[in-house]
């Protein structure tokens, strides 16, 4: 026994920043960003917090799942851009919802939501929970050096949520980690210890573009092929591939290499940019609310990023 998805939700802040607006801030262009990343615009917080976005996404998911807050047995969140290091994001969401269940975060950078799903599956398998709320919420705009044109054009803010109930729809999963502090890094706040003597990096996203790209396009096909095989399926059985929306070129590379029709690869990076661990639940909710998902569909979710880490799973809808 593991889980089924009972409801989904997402939230993005109101403020939209287009590529043309970004071109007035750094030396870039709509043409360059579109060709190299696939982003046309991104939503950016002006007053919304990471917790408030998570809360709004959660309300939608709870409503769809016809689930009340007091029915929740646990809340798990993923974020690399929480409002606070302590309390964890999940605890702030618990407070906003008025819930009383345990709450915790899982930190695994961009693919963290898939690590959250696997953690959730374990709680269901052990009979510890009957209903669970899981959320990815990211305010990446606060983690960016807005004068660095190689990173500030990529990311966006948003949140996605799922309410899970008992079921058998989580068919297979795979996780991969290759510890590395150079390729993708967001340094923590340096602090002000009068005793610590090492130099520290600025607390903004730093990426080695080519190495990140190499890791991602290697991971996406390898992980998808493994979870599809582990679920006893063929690539042609997959109804929808839900890839992390990191860069359109990564998805295009997978489309060329996999035996899955291009139209089955779901893409919304043009609207939201890379929302880190929020991208998967945000995209699943868009698919769900558009009426594209049908009972029995096989969804292949896959993500990759900082760690370096990657993950994939098969969900039966």
């Amino acid at each position: 026994m593991n889980f089924q998805v009972l409801g989904t939700g997402h939230y993005v802040p109101e403020r939209i920043v287009t590529n043309d607006e970004l071109s007035t801030m750094v030396d870039t262009s709509d043409e360059w960003i579109t060709r190299r990343v696939g982003v046309k615009q991104r939503h950016v917080c002006t007053s919304e917090t990471t917790a408030e976005m998570a809360y709004q996404a959660a309300l939608q998911a709870l409503e769809m799942a016809d689930t009340t807050v007091d029915q929740l047995d646990m809340i798990i969140c993923s974020t690399v851009s929480g409002d606070n290091i302590c309390p964890p994001l999940a605890c702030s969401v618990q407070m906003l919802l008025g819930a009383s269940c345990p709450a915790m975060d899982v930190n695994a950078a961009c693919p963290a939501f898939l690590y959250v799903m696997d953690t959730a599956a374990g709680y269901f398998a052990r009979g510890k929970v009957q209903k669970m709320l899981i959320i990815g919420s990211e305010r990446m705009s606060r983690m960016l050096d807005w004068s660095d044109r190689s990173t500030c054009v990529i990311f966006g803010d948003g949140a996605g949520a799922m309410v899970l109930g008992e079921g058998d729809c989580y068919l297979s999963s795979v996780f991969y980690t290759k510890g590395n502090e150079e390729t993708i890094k967001i340094a923590a706040f340096a602090g002000m210890s009068p005793f610590y003597q090492n130099e520290h990096d600025k607390p903004y996203v730093q990426m080695e573009g080519q190495e990140t790209f190499k890791f991602a396009i290697g991971a996406i096909c390898r992980d998808l092929q493994q979870v599809i095989a582990d679920a006893g399926l063929l690539e042609s059985d997959i109804s929808w591939v839900v890839p992390h929306q990191a860069n359109i070129r990564i998805i295009e590379s997978a489309i060329r290499k996999m035996d899955i029709a291009p139209e089955k690869f779901c893409i919304n990076i043009e609207k939201y940019g890379n929302t880190s661990s929020a991208s998967i639940p945000l995209l699943v909710d868009e698919l769900n609310r558009s009426g594209k998902l049908h009972r029995g569909d096989y969804l292949a979710l896959c993500s990759f990023g900082g760690g370096l880490a990657s993950a994939a799973c098969i969900l039966k809808w």
Partner: peptide, 24 residues
């Protein structure tokens, strides 16, 4: 050919040559 195309080609070379190539 842009830098992302180059990275994609380097992956194929890594597989063919059996080595890991760091693009620094």
């Amino acid at each position: 050919i842009d830098s992302l195309d180059t990275a994609e080609m380097v992956i194929e070379l890594e597989e063919e040559l059996g080595i890991e190539i760091q693009l620094k």
